[in-house]
Computed example of a mutant assay.
Amino acid sequence: MANTHAVEVGSAAVVKRFRRWDQGEHRREWRALTLLAEHAPGLAPVPGFPQPTDPDRPPGRADLEADPPSVTMTRLEGVPLAGRLTDAQVGGLAEAVAAVQEAIPGPVLRALPFRLLHPLVALRRLRAWCARRPSPDGDPLVVRAFGAVTDWVGRPRLDDVFSAEFTPVFGLGDGNLANYLWDGARVRIVDFEYSGLSDRAYELAEVVEHISVWVDDGLDAPAFLSRFELTPAETARLRECRRLLALYWFRSVLSEDPERPRNPPGTAARQAGRLLALLGA
């Protein structure tokens, strides 16, 4: 996935300039920061930041009408989660994910637009990709996985699964571990350009199936998921959401420019193995 923004990091403030904003990514970012500053202070950057060291420059906030648009926010302490997470980091990640999901009051939450890449949208795009792409050559595991997912996405019942309504939560919409900052005691969150209305199972799947987790085997998924109390229906939905998002990353890896790969050699085969394991679960 190409970078959607550029970031200017100062000693106390960060300016995020968007390279792509056709789906309102800049407005989603600003809305999320504003809501979280009100309802979950300390979990995410504070939107806007005064710059007293430059008296000729007005306080930094957001320029949502500019080309490109930008958002200014406070800088958070901490380093992005990476590598094999410790038990404390897994716990901190779970606490942060739960906090962001539950932060926004119900009436405000239900008025928000859906997060980007709603599960039904993802399903339709993946069906189209499977239908038009010939079976890949090369690694037998990749070929086998492609056949299995082509069969899976064709199941009509998936439309009902992914259109079903569940208890709404606020969704970050991006499970990249780099969006979670560890300061030695807690995890806080950055990057809300895909955020919006979602459901718990889909957001948890977003975290545990993100390619940043599996490239480095960074997250103990069962340990992370055990920290959430899911209903039987959410547990069943989580299983299908994990398959859906694992397929999304399978497609992403197979669609890479071979001259400019974004992932280490062997990632496609590893993702194929993950997919086959999830489909057989």
Rank of each mutant, 00 (worst) to 15 (best):
N179T: 07
G83Q: 05
T150I: 06
R155N: 14
G78H: 00
G184M: 12
A201E: 03
R115Q: 14
G173W: 00
D160P: 06
L85Q: 02
G138Q: 14
P107I: 14
L112C: 05
G91S: 11
Y202C: 05
R110N: 07
Y180E: 02
L85I: 12
D191M: 07
A88Y: 11
R133H: 09
A131I: 09
D87V: 15
V149Y: 01
R125V: 07
G171A: 15
Y180V: 01
F162Y: 11
Y202R: 02
A88F: 12
T150A: 11
S198V: 00
L126Q: 15
R200I: 11
T150M: 05
Y180W: 11
I104M: 04
R186T: 03
L109G: 04
A201H: 01
L158R: 00
R157M: 12
F114K: 09
G184I: 13
V142S: 03
D151L: 10
F114I: 06
A96E: 02
R144A: 13
Y194G: 00
E102H: 13
V149T: 10
A94R: 08
L112R: 06
V121E: 13
E102W: 10
L123Q: 03
E77V: 05
E165P: 08
A148K: 04
W129C: 05
A96R: 00
P168M: 07
L117Q: 08
R124K: 10
G91E: 13
L81A: 11
R84D: 09
Q101T: 08
S163C: 13
L141F: 04
L123S: 02
G92T: 04
V97D: 02
D151G: 07
L172Q: 12
T86N: 06
